[in-house]
Design a protein around this nucleic acid. Structure first.
Length: 387
DNA sequence: GATCCACGGGAATACACGGATG
DNA sequence: CATCCGTGTATTCCCGTGGATC
């Protein structure tokens, strides 16, 4: 991001203690992740064959939630430009291409949370490879596959495709992903990113582990984000360490807590974050919650349902049905659709159903409780996709 | 006209409980 | 006492429809 857009955003965002919500957002990644140098080295070594015009083997980057998997992969692929090619501009020569002159390998990052169908997956890969616009509807999936094969046909082009968030409830499993990509072309290598230990997955892909952050590194991350997103020193170094200790290695949770603390302090008109405010902020961030980025990449109507859920009176939340009725009155959807969304969101862990006391007869109803950092969502929802 | 996908709606199934039955 | 059954509600599953796009 250049200086001007950054200044512009700061002016727009300045709000109490917070000068840049994006900078403290648990759903946003920075260009230079803190404390992940060794993993970068490992991944660069892995990609080494690209320098000779070859493809690396398929790989699987894995680690626990909040270990910085997405942070590392997005930063890495941001440094490896996609080298888009125009289909009509491929120069066919009688001689072999000179791989030592310029790497013909393209790098494409795909967010598995938005590419959840075959069509969506192929569309995302193709869209990252070519300049021309790729149809979003109206063409059969097979047409995209054909175009991908053409684009990757020798001698023109090779690609390394990173697919993030593999193995979540709504995303491709590693085996399903491999199934889609392996048969596509010999000119494509993939790099999947997920949480599950590779021995539980039966994959030939080369594993690359991201261990959980240690306390010191996580404290550095919190401090660094606080410095770029908050006004002056509103948090003490000790408070940053407290947040890191509370988060227990999970950078997402740490940043959600930092965000919640700054936002809460702002609401209270405080000029610094007091220990009491920090304590209450930590209490309101659910542990082991769904990552905010997952919530913010849900389809728009589902996000609207979640936003409306936060405003439903306690009285109306006695059952899924009454909650859906209350939300449907607020959002332009039928109660039936809202009800189905709530059950689906509960299935994905975005909300939780908890048994409630209901009428004496029949199966007892459930209350619907958010399982994501609601204060952060409230603030970031509708501000556009995370960078 | 073909295609993908979000919505809407409803059928099928699961669950909880009280009361009947053996 | 253990089990079965009926009733009422919650939850899951599935498919048709229509908008948007090509």
């Amino acid at each position: 991001m250049d200086l001007r857009t950054r200044m512009e955003r700061r002016r727009r965002d300045t709000d109490g203690l917070v000068v840049d919500y994006e900078a403290i957002s648990p759903a946003a990644h920075v260009a230079e992740p803190v404390g992940r140098g060794p993993v970068f080295e490992t991944l660069l070594d892995h990609l080494d064959p690209v320098l000779d015009g070859d493809l690396p083997p398929d790989a699987y980057v894995w680690g626990p939630p909040g270990a910085g998997k997405s942070a590392v992969i997005t930063a890495l692929f941001a440094h490896l430009p996609p080298r888009r090619s125009r289909v009509g501009a491929i120069v066919h020569t009688a001689t072999r291409p000179r791989p030592d002159r310029e790497s013909p390998v393209s790098f494409v990052y795909v967010d598995g949370r938005t590419a959840t169908t075959d069509f969506g997956l192929y569309h995302a890969v193709l869209d990252g490879l070519v300049d021309e616009s790729v149809p979003t509807q109206g063409v059969p999936t097979e047409a995209l596959v054909e175009r991908l094969r053409d684009t990757l046909a020798p001698p023109s082009r090779r690609a390394v495709v990173a697919v993030d968030h593999v193995g979540e409830p709504e995303t491709y499993s590693l085996s399903a992903l491999a199934d889609r990509l392996d048969g596509l072309s010999d000119s494509l290598a993939w790099l999947a990113v997920g949480r599950t230990h590779p021995t539980d997955l039966d994959t030939p892909a080369k594993p690359v582990e991201l261990p959980v952050y240690d306390l010191g590194t996580l404290a550095d991350i919190v401090t660094s984000r606080a410095m770029s997103g908050l006004d002056a020193p509103v948090l003490t170094h000790q408070q940053c360490r407290d947040i890191a200790a509370w988060a227990d290695g999970n950078a997402h949770d740490a940043l959600a807590a930092l965000f919640a603390a700054a936002d809460r302090a702002t609401d209270c008109g405080q000029s610094t974050v007091t220990d009491a405010t920090l304590g209450r902020a930590l209490d309101e961030v659910p542990r082991g919650a769904v990552p905010l980025a997952q919530v913010l990449t849900l389809p728009p109507n589902r996000q609207r349902v979640l936003r409306a859920l936060l405003e439903v009176d306690s009285d109306d939340r006695a059952s899924v049905d009454s909650t859906a009725d209350a939300i449907a009155a607020d959002v332009d959807l039928s109660a039936g659709t809202v009800r189905r969304y709530l059950y689906e969101l509960a299935d994905d862990g975005v909300v939780e159903r908890v048994r409630a006391d209901g009428p004496t007869s029949g199966r007892p109803p459930s209350r619907v409780e958010p399982r994501f950092p609601t204060r952060v969502f409230r603030r970031l929802h509708g501000r556009g996709a995370p960078a």
